[in-house]
Amino acid sequence: MPPSAAPHNWFEDNGEAYARFRPDYPERLASFLADRAPSLRRAVDVGCGSGQLTALLAPLFDEVTGVDPSADQIAHAAAVPGVRWVCASAEALPLPDRCASLITVAQAAHWFDLPAFYAEVRRIAVDGAVLALVSYGPPRLQGALQDRFRSFYDHEIGPWWPPERRHVDSGYRDLGFPFPEQEAPELEIRRLWVLDEFLGYLSTWSAVRNARNAGCGTILARFSADLSALWGDPETRRPVCWPLTVRLGVVNSGP
Protein backbone atom coordinates (compact mmCIF):
# COMPACT_ATOMS: atom_id res chain seq x y z
CA MET A 1 0.00 0.00 0.00
CA PRO A 2 1.59 3.34 -0.99
CA PRO A 3 2.12 5.86 1.81
CA SER A 4 -0.41 8.25 0.25
CA ALA A 5 -3.25 5.73 0.46
CA ALA A 6 -5.67 5.77 3.36
CA PRO A 7 -4.87 2.98 5.85
CA HIS A 8 -7.39 0.24 6.44
CA ASN A 9 -9.76 1.28 9.22
CA TRP A 10 -9.27 -1.59 11.63
CA PHE A 11 -11.44 0.22 14.16
CA GLU A 12 -14.47 -0.88 12.15
CA ASP A 13 -13.57 -4.58 12.31
CA ASN A 14 -14.19 -7.26 14.90
CA GLY A 15 -14.77 -11.02 14.95
CA GLU A 16 -11.70 -12.83 13.70
CA ALA A 17 -9.50 -9.81 14.52
CA TYR A 18 -8.81 -11.25 17.98
CA ALA A 19 -7.41 -14.46 16.52
CA ARG A 20 -5.44 -12.57 13.88
CA PHE A 21 -3.93 -9.78 15.93
CA ARG A 22 -3.63 -10.71 19.59
CA PRO A 23 0.08 -11.41 20.14
CA ASP A 24 1.28 -14.90 20.94
CA TYR A 25 3.10 -15.52 24.20
CA PRO A 26 6.82 -16.36 24.34
CA GLU A 27 7.73 -20.04 24.35
CA ARG A 28 9.78 -19.40 27.47
CA LEU A 29 6.53 -18.74 29.38
CA ALA A 30 5.12 -22.15 28.45
CA SER A 31 8.40 -23.88 29.29
CA PHE A 32 8.60 -22.18 32.68
CA LEU A 33 5.03 -23.17 33.56
CA ALA A 34 5.59 -26.76 32.47
CA ASP A 35 8.73 -26.93 34.61
CA ARG A 36 6.80 -25.77 37.67
CA ALA A 37 3.86 -28.16 37.19
CA PRO A 38 4.03 -31.36 39.28
CA SER A 39 3.36 -33.47 36.19
CA LEU A 40 2.72 -33.03 32.47
CA ARG A 41 -0.54 -34.94 32.45
CA ARG A 42 -3.00 -32.13 31.74
CA ALA A 43 -2.99 -28.35 31.43
CA VAL A 44 -6.20 -26.31 31.43
CA ASP A 45 -6.20 -22.81 29.92
CA VAL A 46 -9.24 -20.91 31.20
CA GLY A 47 -10.58 -17.88 29.35
CA CYS A 48 -8.43 -19.08 26.48
CA GLY A 49 -9.92 -16.83 23.81
CA SER A 50 -8.70 -18.04 20.44
CA GLY A 51 -5.90 -20.03 22.07
CA GLN A 52 -2.72 -17.96 22.04
CA LEU A 53 -1.34 -19.57 25.19
CA THR A 54 -3.21 -22.86 24.84
CA ALA A 55 -1.39 -23.78 21.63
CA LEU A 56 2.00 -23.15 23.24
CA LEU A 57 1.23 -25.60 26.03
CA ALA A 58 0.15 -28.39 23.69
CA PRO A 59 3.62 -29.81 22.85
CA LEU A 60 4.54 -29.91 26.55
CA PHE A 61 1.55 -31.75 28.08
CA ASP A 62 -0.18 -35.04 27.39
CA GLU A 63 -3.52 -33.25 27.22
CA VAL A 64 -4.49 -29.58 27.05
CA THR A 65 -8.00 -28.18 27.42
CA GLY A 66 -8.84 -24.64 26.31
CA VAL A 67 -11.98 -23.21 27.92
CA ASP A 68 -13.78 -20.00 26.97
CA PRO A 69 -17.39 -18.83 27.40
CA SER A 70 -17.46 -17.29 23.91
CA ALA A 71 -18.49 -19.65 21.12
CA ASP A 72 -17.11 -17.12 18.64
CA GLN A 73 -13.67 -17.23 20.24
CA ILE A 74 -13.65 -21.03 20.28
CA ALA A 75 -14.75 -21.06 16.63
CA HIS A 76 -11.67 -19.03 15.69
CA ALA A 77 -9.25 -21.21 17.65
CA ALA A 78 -6.98 -23.20 15.36
CA ALA A 79 -7.04 -26.99 15.44
CA VAL A 80 -4.01 -28.03 17.49
CA PRO A 81 -2.99 -31.66 18.10
CA GLY A 82 -3.56 -32.59 21.73
CA VAL A 83 -5.90 -29.66 22.45
CA ARG A 84 -9.60 -29.97 23.22
CA TRP A 85 -11.62 -26.76 22.99
CA VAL A 86 -14.59 -26.34 25.33
CA CYS A 87 -17.16 -23.55 25.47
CA ALA A 88 -17.83 -22.97 29.18
CA SER A 89 -17.46 -20.41 31.92
CA ALA A 90 -14.54 -20.14 34.31
CA GLU A 91 -16.93 -20.56 37.21
CA ALA A 92 -18.36 -23.91 36.02
CA LEU A 93 -15.59 -25.90 34.37
CA PRO A 94 -16.84 -29.12 32.73
CA LEU A 95 -13.83 -31.10 33.95
CA PRO A 96 -13.43 -33.96 36.42
CA ASP A 97 -12.07 -33.52 39.93
CA ARG A 98 -8.29 -33.53 40.38
CA CYS A 99 -7.43 -33.71 36.71
CA ALA A 100 -5.14 -30.70 36.12
CA SER A 101 -1.50 -30.19 37.02
CA LEU A 102 -1.40 -26.71 35.45
CA ILE A 103 -4.20 -24.14 35.25
CA THR A 104 -3.54 -20.94 33.33
CA VAL A 105 -5.47 -17.74 32.75
CA ALA A 106 -4.00 -15.34 30.22
CA GLN A 107 -5.35 -11.78 30.02
CA ALA A 108 -8.79 -12.89 31.25
CA ALA A 109 -8.85 -13.17 35.07
CA HIS A 110 -10.20 -9.63 35.47
CA TRP A 111 -13.49 -10.80 33.92
CA PHE A 112 -14.00 -13.73 36.32
CA ASP A 113 -16.02 -14.15 39.47
CA LEU A 114 -12.81 -14.99 41.25
CA PRO A 115 -14.15 -16.75 44.37
CA ALA A 116 -16.22 -19.08 42.18
CA PHE A 117 -13.29 -19.62 39.81
CA TYR A 118 -10.88 -20.36 42.66
CA ALA A 119 -13.34 -22.93 44.02
CA GLU A 120 -13.23 -24.63 40.63
CA VAL A 121 -9.43 -24.43 40.60
CA ARG A 122 -9.28 -26.26 43.91
CA ARG A 123 -11.71 -28.87 42.62
CA ILE A 124 -9.91 -29.72 39.37
CA ALA A 125 -6.33 -29.32 40.62
CA VAL A 126 -4.16 -32.22 41.65
CA ASP A 127 -2.22 -31.66 44.87
CA GLY A 128 0.63 -29.27 44.17
CA ALA A 129 -0.82 -28.09 40.86
CA VAL A 130 0.24 -24.67 39.61
CA LEU A 131 -2.14 -21.78 38.90
CA ALA A 132 -0.78 -18.95 36.72
CA LEU A 133 -2.53 -15.63 36.12
CA VAL A 134 -0.80 -14.02 33.16
CA SER A 135 -1.33 -10.43 32.08
CA TYR A 136 0.21 -7.73 29.95
CA GLY A 137 -0.52 -4.03 29.96
CA PRO A 138 -0.36 -1.48 27.16
CA PRO A 139 2.25 -2.02 24.46
CA ARG A 140 5.42 0.01 24.23
CA LEU A 141 6.55 1.66 21.01
CA GLN A 142 9.54 3.87 20.36
CA GLY A 143 10.08 7.62 20.16
CA ALA A 144 7.25 9.83 18.94
CA LEU A 145 5.06 6.79 18.31
CA GLN A 146 5.15 5.98 22.02
CA ASP A 147 4.33 9.57 23.00
CA ARG A 148 1.30 9.67 20.70
CA PHE A 149 0.16 6.23 21.79
CA ARG A 150 0.38 7.08 25.52
CA SER A 151 -1.67 10.21 24.97
CA PHE A 152 -4.30 8.09 23.23
CA TYR A 153 -4.22 5.42 25.93
CA ASP A 154 -4.22 7.72 28.95
CA HIS A 155 -6.46 10.58 27.84
CA GLU A 156 -8.50 9.70 24.75
CA ILE A 157 -9.50 6.04 24.95
CA GLY A 158 -9.08 5.83 28.72
CA PRO A 159 -12.68 6.78 29.64
CA TRP A 160 -14.00 3.95 27.50
CA TRP A 161 -12.25 1.14 29.33
CA PRO A 162 -14.50 -0.99 31.56
CA PRO A 163 -13.67 -0.76 35.28
CA GLU A 164 -11.99 -4.18 35.20
CA ARG A 165 -9.17 -2.78 33.08
CA ARG A 166 -7.52 -1.35 36.19
CA HIS A 167 -6.58 -4.90 37.19
CA VAL A 168 -4.65 -5.33 33.94
CA ASP A 169 -2.83 -2.04 34.43
CA SER A 170 -1.78 -3.19 37.91
CA GLY A 171 -0.45 -6.50 36.61
CA TYR A 172 -3.19 -8.29 38.59
CA ARG A 173 -1.44 -7.28 41.82
CA ASP A 174 -4.71 -5.96 43.23
CA LEU A 175 -6.61 -9.21 42.62
CA GLY A 176 -7.22 -11.56 45.51
CA PHE A 177 -4.94 -14.58 45.16
CA PRO A 178 -5.41 -17.11 47.98
CA PHE A 179 -2.53 -19.43 47.06
CA PRO A 180 1.10 -19.54 48.20
CA GLU A 181 2.99 -17.56 45.58
CA GLN A 182 6.21 -18.35 43.77
CA GLU A 183 8.53 -16.08 41.84
CA ALA A 184 8.28 -15.90 38.07
CA PRO A 185 10.98 -14.68 35.67
CA GLU A 186 10.79 -11.36 33.89
CA LEU A 187 9.21 -12.02 30.52
CA GLU A 188 7.93 -9.95 27.64
CA ILE A 189 6.26 -10.27 24.27
CA ARG A 190 8.18 -8.74 21.37
CA ARG A 191 6.91 -8.21 17.85
CA LEU A 192 7.98 -6.39 14.72
CA TRP A 193 4.74 -5.13 13.24
CA VAL A 194 3.60 -3.16 10.23
CA LEU A 195 1.04 -0.42 10.82
CA ASP A 196 -2.01 -2.54 9.96
CA GLU A 197 -0.95 -5.21 12.45
CA PHE A 198 -0.69 -2.68 15.26
CA LEU A 199 -4.03 -1.05 14.43
CA GLY A 200 -5.58 -4.51 14.06
CA TYR A 201 -4.43 -5.33 17.58
CA LEU A 202 -5.96 -2.11 18.95
CA SER A 203 -9.25 -3.01 17.26
CA THR A 204 -9.58 -5.96 19.67
CA TRP A 205 -9.69 -3.67 22.72
CA SER A 206 -12.98 -3.44 24.56
CA ALA A 207 -12.43 0.30 24.98
CA VAL A 208 -12.16 0.77 21.22
CA ARG A 209 -15.40 -1.14 20.68
CA ASN A 210 -17.10 0.87 23.43
CA ALA A 211 -16.00 4.19 21.92
CA ARG A 212 -17.08 3.16 18.44
CA ASN A 213 -20.46 1.90 19.65
CA ALA A 214 -21.00 5.19 21.49
CA GLY A 215 -20.53 7.14 18.26
CA CYS A 216 -17.08 8.47 19.16
CA GLY A 217 -15.36 7.22 16.05
CA THR A 218 -13.67 10.60 15.52
CA ILE A 219 -11.34 9.83 18.45
CA LEU A 220 -10.26 6.64 16.72
CA ALA A 221 -9.97 8.20 13.27
CA ARG A 222 -7.84 11.07 14.59
CA PHE A 223 -5.48 8.71 16.39
CA SER A 224 -5.22 6.43 13.36
CA ALA A 225 -4.33 9.39 11.13
CA ASP A 226 -1.74 10.71 13.60
CA LEU A 227 -0.13 7.33 14.06
CA SER A 228 -0.04 6.73 10.31
CA ALA A 229 1.80 10.01 9.78
CA LEU A 230 4.36 9.15 12.48
CA TRP A 231 4.79 5.57 11.28
CA GLY A 232 5.81 6.58 7.76
CA ASP A 233 5.77 3.77 5.22
CA PRO A 234 2.96 1.54 6.58
CA GLU A 235 4.89 -1.58 5.55
CA THR A 236 7.85 -0.67 7.76
CA ARG A 237 8.14 -3.11 10.65
CA ARG A 238 8.53 -1.37 13.99
CA PRO A 239 9.19 -2.92 17.41
CA VAL A 240 6.28 -3.41 19.81
CA CYS A 241 6.82 -4.79 23.32
CA TRP A 242 4.52 -5.92 26.14
CA PRO A 243 6.08 -6.73 29.56
CA LEU A 244 4.38 -9.79 31.08
CA THR A 245 3.27 -10.25 34.67
CA VAL A 246 2.81 -13.77 36.04
CA ARG A 247 1.18 -14.48 39.40
CA LEU A 248 2.08 -18.06 40.19
CA GLY A 249 0.48 -20.06 42.98
CA VAL A 250 0.58 -23.62 44.27
CA VAL A 251 -2.82 -25.26 44.76
CA ASN A 252 -3.52 -27.78 47.50
CA SER A 253 -6.84 -29.30 46.50
CA GLY A 254 -7.67 -30.50 50.01
CA PRO A 255 -9.56 -33.60 51.06
Results as ranks from 00 to 15, higher is better:
170 S>C: 06
118 Y>Q: 04
219 I>V: 14
17 A>W: 11
219 I>Q: 11
45 D>C: 09
66 G>A: 12
87 C>P: 00
216 C>W: 07
226 D>S: 12
174 D>M: 03
236 T>A: 13
53 L>D: 06
185 P>E: 10
66 G>H: 12
3 P>N: 09
12 E>Y: 14
83 V>F: 14
131 L>R: 05
210 N>P: 03
111 W>I: 07
4 S>H: 15
49 G>Y: 08
96 P>K: 05
15 G>F: 13
167 H>M: 06
44 V>T: 05
140 R>D: 04
113 D>A: 14
210 N>I: 04
144 A>R: 15
157 I>V: 14
156 E>D: 15
39 S>I: 00
55 A>F: 10
29 L>V: 03
232 G>C: 02
185 P>H: 06
87 C>W: 00
77 A>R: 11
123 R>E: 00
175 L>K: 08
186 E>D: 12
171 G>W: 13
207 A>K: 01
78 A>C: 01
138 P>H: 14
134 V>D: 05
96 P>L: 00
235 E>N: 12
254 G>T: 03
196 D>V: 01
214 A>T: 09
124 I>V: 14
70 S>Q: 02
248 L>K: 12
230 L>W: 03
27 E>P: 07
21 F>H: 10
104 T>L: 02
103 I>Q: 05
70 S>H: 01
98 R>C: 02
132 A>G: 07
34 A>Q: 12
179 F>V: 11
41 R>N: 09
198 F>Q: 10
193 W>M: 15
207 A>T: 03
161 W>L: 09
198 F>S: 10
13 D>C: 09
24 D>R: 10
115 P>M: 09
119 A>N: 08
107 Q>L: 07
228 S>C: 12
191 R>C: 13
206 S>P: 00
102 L>K: 03
1 M>H: 11
192 L>M: 13
216 C>R: 15
164 E>M: 10
67 V>H: 13
194 V>K: 15
208 V>D: 00
196 D>P: 02
112 F>S: 02
47 G>N: 06
111 W>D: 10
